[in-house]
Design a protein around this nucleic acid. Structure first.
Lengths: 361, 361
DNA sequence: CGATAGACTGCAAACGATTGCAGAAACGCT
DNA sequence: AGCGTTTCTGCAATCGTTTGCAGTCTATCG
């Protein structure tokens, strides 16, 4: 069917081994035959068979990326970045979707090593540490976004403590004193770390922590809705909500829309992790960007590094943090300074919705 | 490193060939040895090496899916569906992102066949027909969502004429007479077909086609914004907008928000292809669902079919349509019947935003 | 001019499976 | 018992590469 090395060798009247050496550029052939073979190979349209090559070399030119889903915007950009980087290097990406389910993760992992992947970037569920550790002996592995505490794998993490800190500080600087926090489950690293960043910012600003303003929950929109309602139903509702649970954002938005609460006039909103439509939304939604793109890039860097330095001793650094950054858009507003009689303009601009709110809430 | 067939054979004191036959279940071994070998293989943790197997059989157990991006929600669910189906069948999915760029598509295609993929599902750019056609001789291929007119490949398409027809009819049934259409480029199948569905519904209802209400453009949010503005700036603006260009939706939404136009009070909005947040948005956005999930499933079905019936003569059907369906949510409203003096309630509910609109538009 | 190093090249054995062919064993039949 | 079938097993080739080893050739040096 397709043209093989043998065909090229025959056409050039050399042996297969010479052809191989010339085309892989192992430098053990004379300049002249090398060039000649390259030319002939091109003319014949020779393309090496990765399967045959893989059988001999034990490499597949396949790198797998295992994420939970593709709904999460961060995973989307990670998949896109990883795929683009790898393709440029002549690798193909095997994209696997594990659904954050340990069983699926485990199955997938075994079939992946069966396929002799050359490397793996994985967002671990955290429940298959032993297996991952074992596989790491055969295949370079880099963990992404989450750490699997049962392993000592190299891990690329978002700087959630810092991100949450930056976000909270931003709100504080805008004059907010009562800041609601909607955050992820506290049995996840990101959930805990974001809470701690929030707390730190508060502490630095000398604002007392108020636990009625802090709500943790699952990574689903419903969480956002129920938490938002609780926050808004408080006797003294917050003037800003920091939704540090990406998946909860939709729920929060729905509740504010239902209650006709204007953003940012009535309440400021700061979210976590970007979505393509955030900047198209009116008001455009300010966020703390977890740096999905950078995370993916760094993960690829680290993976490539390990793939090159095959099996050399363990290195020093095993955990990398990618800086988070604040992207200010239009969903957070400056709280009127406590100086009276100067806030006429801003008040009037929000009067309509404030009225609507007091009427409905 | 890992346990090979030879190891199993040795442990069982049979030849490699017998082991192979027993484990692949080619039925040429006695029941007893078969069972024995299976047991031993399991005990030893034998897992066949797909690379070695692939070299001999010419199969890789790899199926590729080539889409334009992962931002589009339809592609996301397609990727998830395809991956899930394939995994269940013991295939791995190679996900490639071509960015709707012919050059990238072409490159990707060649490396994919290099890797001896067993099958390919592709959303074609339409510019590499010749190449696709050539590859189809070696690999089963199914086109998805778009047709490549230069080929006679089996193709799974959304029923866009019907979808657009359903959507338009829905709006007409709600009493709308002036329906703005924002649709995709007219050099794409979907762009043309959706326009035709719209026109047909209008014709059936005896509504004259008004070309000032029809805007076609690229598949980007900006298109939505500019088209929406044109529509709204019309002397007699439409009472409903049908955004039959998925990517344009964000732009439309932004413009209505900026101009404080209430949906559906001031204008009804019907979109095309679902997004996870559409039902969380307030108002929840009504859509015509293109059936991404069904499309993906059918594509997999057809591909598997071709992969089984390897190389048998061409069949009859080469084009499949997957039905679109209307999902009614809250962004389209019934236009007040032309009977006067009975519309007090609905008018009052929209009065605020109408006022705002007249003030700003 | 002969020896020797150096630079290329080819032979053949892998890699781990599948598979055609032929031999061996078991069985039934006359 | 002898023979033909049937059923199972093993040998060895094969898929397309890579690579250790040994051999050939040329050039250089004493």
């Amino acid at each position: 069917m397709s043209v093989t090395l043998k065909d090229v060798a025959q056409a050039a009247r050399v042996s297969v081994s010479t052809a191989s050496r010339a085309l892989t550029g192992t430098g053990l052939t004379s300049e002249r035959t090398q060039q000649r073979l390259v030319r002939i190979a091109r003319r014949l349209g020779y393309r090496p068979n990765p399967i045959a090559r893989g059988l001999k070399t034990g490499q597949s030119r396949l790198v797998a990326l295992l994420v939970h889903n593709l709904t999460n915007a961060s995973f989307q950009v990670m998949a896109e970045v990883v795929q683009a980087r790898l393709k440029a290097l002549g690798y193909q990406m095997l994209l696997c979707i594990g659904g954050d389910d340990p069983q699926q993760e485990s199955d997938t992992l075994t079939t992946l090593v069966d396929h002799r992947i050359d490397g793996l970037i994985v967002v671990p569920t955290g429940k298959n540490g032993a297996q991952l550790k074992a596989l790491a002996k055969d295949v370079p592995i880099v963990c992404l976004v989450r750490r699997d505490d049962a392993t000592d794998l190299e891990t690329v993490l978002a700087d959630d403590p810092q991100g949450a800190y930056l976000g909270t500080r931003h709100l504080i600087e805008l004059g907010h004193k009562r800041i609601g926090l909607i955050v992820g489950r506290q049995d996840t690293t990101s959930g805990r770390e974001r809470l701690s960043g929030y707390v730190r910012a508060l502490r630095e600003a000398g604002i007392a922590r108020d636990d009625t303003l802090i709500h943790a929950g699952h990574f689903v929109p419903e969480t956002g809705a129920t938490c938002a309602r609780r926050l808004l139903d408080l006797p003294r509702p917050p003037s800003a909500i920091f939704v540090a649970n990406h998946e909860a954002t939709l729920g929060v938005l729905r509740v504010t829309a239902e209650r006709n609460i204007a953003i940012p006039a009535d309440i400021s909103l700061l979210c976590y992790e970007d979505m393509p439509w955030f900047e198209w939304h009116r008001p455009a939604i300010s966020i703390v960007d977890n740096g999905a793109r950078d995370l993916a890039n760094l993960a690829v860097d680290r993976l490539l590094h390990r793939m090159d330095a095959k099996g050399n001793g363990r290195e020093g650094v095993r955990e990398y943090r990618v800086g988070a950054r604040l992207i200010k858009r239009d969903s957070c507003r400056q709280i009127d300074a406590p100086v009276p009689g100067k806030s006429a303009k801003s008040r009037s601009s929000s009067s309509k919705s404030s009225a609507a709110r007091s009427a409905k809430v």
